[in-house]
Design a protein around this nucleic acid. Structure first.
Lengths: 159, 159
DNA sequence: CATAATTTAATTGGACGCAATATAATTTTG
DNA sequence: CAAAATTATATTGCGTCCAATTAAATTATG
């Protein structure tokens, strides 16, 4: 953009070596946004956002989850999930009902419309797979590396 | 959490192979949040958020950038940057002045306090490096893989 | 059994992130 | 030169995110 005379290919110079963690974080940050941009047009057709889609994915695998259960699966808390789930309810994809046995808990369940969406949204899988441009092997390796990184960070964050 | 009798270790079953792109996206999404949680306590000491820190990193490398320049470097638009930069200005880390030559542009520059923060915040590098738990080699490989993924996604997103 | 501690959701407030719109300045064109 | 198109930034609105607080229900404890 300006004068980057000190930016050679991909060599690891002293400063870069130290800053690798930061660069890794920024790379993750950027890819997360890029994925979001890739998903957006696909999800807009259904009026969904990516986190909303994640909730539906979780429910498609295992219906009737509590808010807490969904939060643990996705790493989100009630501050994020409560309004999100209300929007999903308003849109008619899920129902929210207090557990009879323990009235503190709210059971989130797929509606008929929510179940039906699973097959409708199946094409998204293919689209995203294509967009990554990764071979199955590359994608699996990258996913695995990211899981390891996630574990390390969670441990460091006292989880 | 409940009965996940169909969730075996890390094998690639048919469904999983198809869903690899999604799983990759979710892994990235999760790691991005984990990084954010790692940075938060480090940045709280300076009253900064991660995106604000990114802007300062960019300015420490190259002072006096336009809003557009920063946006291109970080992948953010004015809707995000305008209020963020005002907060950085209020906090006293940067100044914002309209370019005399082209009054459409706003030049963002580090204040004395902003420059001084660079050495103060140096410890963050080490902390983040430690938190990743990666060797230099692993980190470099992962970063490189993410760059490749970013390129693919950007191309797919018509960039 | 009554009070305290814990658990589960919801709410509130501050900060992204982006689309869409607005505004002002510059450049292009006729 | 004046109108149109382009460019740079700001604003608005919606939807995450998270921390902190609140409220209600359940469990533990004296």
């Amino acid at each position: 953009m300006t004068d980057d005379s000190d930016a050679r290919k991909d060599d690891l110079k002293d400063g870069e070596a130290l800053a690798l963690g930061q660069q890794l974080c920024f790379a993750v940050y950027s890819v997360a946004h890029a994925f979001n941009r890739t998903y957006k047009p696909l999800l807009d057709r259904f009026g969904l956002t990516y986190p909303q889609y994640l909730v539906l994915l979780a429910l498609w695998q295992h219906d009737n989850m509590t808010v807490k259960g969904i939060g643990e699966e996705l790493g989100l808390d009630s501050g994020t999930l409560s309004p999100l789930l209300k929007r999903l309810e308003t849109a008619g994809f899920v129902s929210r009902t207090r557990d009879k046995g323990d009235e503190r808990q709210v059971i989130v369940a797929l509606t008929e419309k929510g179940v039906a969406l699973k097959t409708e949204a199946f094409g998204i899988l293919m689209e995203i797979g294509k967009a990554t441009g990764c071979s199955m092997k590359e994608a699996a390796a990258l996913r695995s590396a990211l899981h390891g990184l996630n574990r390390h960070l969670d441990e460091h964050n006292g989880g």
